[in-house]
Design a protein around this nucleic acid. Structure first.
Lengths: 339, 339
DNA sequence: CTGAAAGCGCTAACAA
DNA sequence: TTGTTAGCGCTTTCAG
């Protein structure tokens, strides 16, 4: 016998029809006992595996979902991926990773994969959709897509999110509680929704405490190490340098702290720094980073759960799940020095 | 029209047979010009996408490859993944990520995916195969599998590797050049091939310099942060604590440095530390980590290239590619203090 | 250069 | 409970 065994081979050896084999192997409960175990044995001995293409073609489903992120290279997404994968596996789905590199064409490609049968549904972790809205509506309406972490407005898609505004406000309040007044914010690439929300949280906290935000106290970064360094330097060269910085993600916070050190400033002695994300290395960093913890694995889990509900028709209207965050107070923040 | 357009729909609208449409759309050069562009236009306007299951079933290929790693959660694999993906895409393949979690069953599962048509080939980045050798031989012989970074011996599989022994030796020689004599090694989980090789490099360098390796100077870790901390502490509590430590990977090195700091020791003032991997955060770490850089993206690229050659039948016998490494000397190593 | 026809391997009506 | 039959959408001989 050349190549892998087919259902027909099993049928022949077991002396039954292909249909019976199919039924036996997929646990429909429609096959009687003497036959059932015989088929199973034969399948086992032939080392049988159903051909997925044939099955998918016939059933019109791929039993796969697509998880699309901006950049697979970012460790931040990994734990989410794990959460997604675990839940998907348990339901018999496999997970394909998609990587857009912030490239509109590639995003479209992944949407196309839904239509061409590559995947049955999609978990989107990218914030912007590049096409004109009407086109989007056409494509998106009724598509099995769940948005995680980011926000895509006006399309009625289910979301799994965190309270970016509240979490940021809490982070900044922590700095205010420590007596800081000149608090700057290194933001993500506004006007992306997530970055705007984190900046809003910062502004709310400042305003509630009656603190002013000087011009230029909200430089815009790109969530990468290097921009943390550059923007921190600019901030420190001002006549009114901050005594604390709330940075929109951990990676930029690492850059910020490094730059402060290079400038001869002590963290947290001279300047306090708070990040956002709680990467697994953040507590191994020196000083251990005070940062906002997101329940990443749970976010992935919930996103996949939602998607399963969409896929089974249980979930018809868009629902937004909000997952809790927690400020991890560690060594990068301290009381403001008395003036 | 319900559902996505099929080849038949295009054929109908263009007034040709399905066969011609198929030929036109797959650029076989067998379709004449008036027809060709008409078909393309119709396909475009119908927003046609070929159904992958049908195509795969017919062609007996999935145009997908599987990249299997121990732990997707490890950022170390990400850049490799990127290299693999870029090369795969260019050749029209997509990449599926597999995650074994060091679980034998799951490894088998991924091998099965080759047989059931999920993927056409596989890039394996796990060091051990759990099954009895004869079984392995049956399964593996002639399978389109390329091993990257790790080593699987005796099965005649193509490999893409680095010189773990040489790189480790060079790392330790760097410490010796700095005047260190009491140099310890925190190893990976021996007897895994990679861990053994790195330890061998350490031993070779020590022996070549005529330096002794006291009992207990080679504690065995698991490549995770925490074991770096624990093992470092044990090392420092000895009557003859090391003045330098060569750690088998960066993650454990981070743990090591943190623990040293906790013990009130300065890095590199009191103890020098060298890692292995050069994670993207290693230069952002404090102090910036001296470590062995591996060309990760290139490793992924080459592994995929090899796999493509296997897939096209260009590569028939096992070939082992060795990629260069480079010691990145940064701030975590310094001259030994005079005694 | 184009069309007709067969079939990839599987599952799901419909019959028996 | 099992078998018969048809067909998922595509590509590829084989004819013309």
């Amino acid at each position: 016998m050349a190549g892998p065994a087919k259902i027909k081979d099993i049928a022949a050896r077991a002396g039954v029809s292909p249909a019976t084999v199919s039924r036996a192997l997929s646990d429909t409960g429609l096959v009687a006992e003497p036959t059932l175990s015989r088929i199973r044995e034969v399948a086992q001995s032939l080392n049988y595996r159903p051909n997925v293409s044939a099955r998918n073609l016939r059933t019109q489903r791929s039993m796969a979902v697509l998880m699309v992120v901006r950049d697979v290279g970012n460790p931040f997404y990994l734990e989410i991926m794990k959460g997604v994968e675990a839940t998907a596996r348990a339901a018999g789905y496999s997970v394909l990773m998609g990587n857009t590199e912030n490239n509109a064409e590639r995003e479209v490609e992944y949407f196309d994969m839904l239509r061409d049968g590559h995947a049955d549904g999609m978990i989107l972790i990218t914030g912007k959709l590049p096409w004109s809205v009407q086109e989007s509506r056409q494509h998106l309406h009724g598509l099995p897509v769940v948005v995680a972490l980011e926000t895509i407005e006006g399309l009625g898609l289910p979301h799994v999110q965190i309270d970016n505004v509240g979490a940021s406000r809490a982070a900044v309040e922590h700095l205010i509680d420590l007596g800081h007044e000149r608090i700057a914010h290194i933001s993500g690439p506004v006007p992306e929704v997530m970055s705007v929300k984190r900046r809003d949280g910062y502004r709310q906290a400042m305003s509630a405490a009656g603190l002013a935000i000087p011009d230029g106290y909200e430089p815009v970064g790109d969530y990468l190490l290097h921009s943390g360094e550059t923007l921190c330097r600019a901030l420190c060269e001002r006549p009114d340098p901050p005594t604390a910085i709330f940075v929109a993600n951990d990676e930029m916070a690492f850059g910020t702290i490094n730059e402060l050190r290079r400038l001869g400033l002590d963290v947290p002695g001279d300047v306090s720094v708070v990040g956002f994300d709680d990467l697994f290395l953040s507590q191994a960093f020196y000083p251990p980073l005070t940062t906002v913890r997101q329940p990443r694995a749970e976010i992935g889990q919930e996103a996949m759960r939602q998607l399963l509900r969409v896929l089974t028709g249980d979930l018809t209207e868009a629902e937004t799940l909000e997952m809790p965050t927690a400020l991890q107070v560690r060594g990068s923040t301290a009381r403001a020095k008395p003036i």
